[in-house]
Write a protein that binds this DNA or RNA. Structure first.
Lengths: 139, 139
DNA sequence: TATATTAGTTAGCCTAGCTAACTATACGCT
DNA sequence: AGCGTATAGTTAGCTAGGCTAACTAATATA
């Protein structure tokens, strides 16, 4: 097996256990990891239109609609008018802002434990590798 | 955002685009990436019981049952008697062996292109990081 | 020998996506 | 100004790829 195959093998193998454990931590906020991904995007980069969100997350518009609907229900985000009558901007509510911070604090120790024994430099290299692949395959 | 959060962010972001593209390549064999993962396991490590497969892939037994059923239908694997009357071993058929090699050859250029601009050393570090996380979170 | 454990299956559920087809608004061209 | 095209978001309905709970059959153990 080539090292490339080995890498992607390992990449895929980790996915479910990782997501499942994140979901356990998110449970008390009634969130799943996909919804959390959107909250984090809004926190990091401010309000976005549905189309922007779809592009950033590499998912389709109807998937965004559903994510947003759920987060609106929970009171974590709200939609406001955009540049014209078609557009809607999605943004965190005050409560959403708080929750995001709280969750980030909760996830931090889990992430650190998951990366126990891995140096900062290795984490940075691995992050860069993932970012490169992302760029290569979405070209 | 901490570098740990950044890493897992990037990790998750890559998943769907990657799986989708692998699935496109697998389409002509009527396979999806989860089924491919099992074929690769059988190729790499020989025949396994259902329970072994569940443990290796970090999924539950009923999920294994479905994967195997599909691959049996396609004629890529077969089940044979195990050590006692409860156990069943899953192994590749002759056709399965051929198909796996063919698919590996098809995936190789895709993997290489996805990793374009990433050095062998970086790939190895990233693989090791993923393996470490896997070990840490499944403890 | 009765009870507990283990291997695999079945039924039915869920997340997290997808495509196709739709509505409403905006833009471009004559 | 009006018509055709493009864009933003929604709805309906589908799928992969898991999951749990509850089951059967076979084996191990007290």
């Amino acid at each position: 097996m080539t090292i490339e195959q080995e890498f992607f093998n390992q990449y895929r193998l980790m996915y479910r256990p990782f997501i499942n454990q994140v979901n356990v931590l998110l449970e008390k906020y009634q969130l799943f990891s996909s919804q959390w991904a959107l909250l984090r995007l809004l926190k990091d980069k401010g309000s976005h239109t549905f189309v922007d969100i779809a592009n950033f997350m590499f998912i389709e518009k109807p998937s965004v609609t559903r994510l947003v609907q759920k987060l609106v229900e929970l009171g974590y985000v709200e939609t406001v008018a955009g540049r014209d009558k078609r557009e809607k901007l999605v943004q965190l509510t005050a409560n959403g802002e708080e929750i995001v911070q709280e969750i980030q604090a909760q996830l931090k120790p889990f992430f650190e434990q998951a990366l126990a024994g891995v140096s900062k430099q290795e984490i940075e290299i691995a992050t860069q590798v993932l970012a490169n692949i992302c760029a290569n395959i979405n070209r």
